[in-house]
């Protein structure tokens, strides 16, 4: 699903990622840990095509990101969904409109959109809020809308950047259950998190750590976020 070799990324003179080698198989569940500023978000943004590959080779969901032109990046984004740390939802639109958006841009017929969006909202306990404007929702509800929007398209790979950051314990666990369900249906999932409890909940999942831009296999004590 993901093959990365010797990938480095710099912001000006600041090194964010250094010679990262990483491989993720189809259907794998990976936790990406590391302290704040370790490069987790940069790593995810590169995988999603939001940042260009500066050095090294990156292949995601069958797309060679070294050669993928900007005008074809939407194809990558149709196979790879992202849950952003800051949600990135349209706050002036309803929950339903937000979750339906990725289906609409794919030209899916309205009756199918209706069915799929309702099902996802039900599984995330948001069905009663379907027609509420997102600006009226709490942070936790907005986060669930972001997750619903990411999973509604049944992506091959789901990247989630701190998806439980604004949720209490109970909702975090429910969210992980949802991720687990999608994982069972074959979706590869990578979650960037500080939360040990959710990692413990997914006992069989693989853990990788980013620290000072360098990737390590397993959970590494950093003295920071973990």
């Amino acid at each position: 699903m993901i093959t990365i070799s010797k990938m480095s990324y710099t912001f000006g003179k600041q090194l964010a990622l250094k010679d990262v080698n990483f491989c993720m198989k189809q259907g794998e569940f990976v936790f990406l840990c590391g302290p704040s500023g370790a490069g987790k978000t940069t790593f995810m943004r590169i995988l999603h095509g939001a940042l260009p590959v500066q050095r090294g080779k990156v292949d995601v969901a069958g797309y060679d990101l070294n050669t993928l032109p900007e005008r074809r990046k939407h194809l990558l984004r149709r196979d790879v969904s992202v849950v952003f740390q800051d949600f990135k939802i349209l706050t002036n639109q309803t929950v339903f409109a937000n979750v339906a958006l990725p289906l609409k841009v794919r030209g899916i017929p309205r009756h199918i959109i209706e069915k799929r969006v309702r099902a996802v909202l039900r599984s995330l306990h948001l069905d009663h809020k379907a027609m509420s404007p997102c600006e009226e929702l709490s942070g936790g509800e907005q986060q669930r809308v972001a997750v619903a929007r990411a999973v509604v398209v049944k992506p091959k790979l789901l990247l989630a950047d701190e998806p439980t950051g604004n949720l209490d314990y109970e909702l975090s666990m429910r969210m992980m259950d949802i991720f687990q369900q999608f994982h069972k249906f074959g979706t590869s999932i990578m979650i960037a998190t500080h939360n040990r409890e959710i990692m413990e909940r997914m006992s069989g999942a693989r853990v990788v750590t980013l620290h000072d831009g360098v990737m390590h296999e397993g959970c590494v004590e950093t003295g920071g976020g973990l």
Binding site: H74, R77, I89, L90, L101, V105
Partner: peptide, 16 residues
Amino acid sequence: REELEILRFVGASRAY
């Protein structure tokens, strides 16, 4: 800007 960015991230093509 924000709305267009979101559209890009959810897989909208350039033409869309």
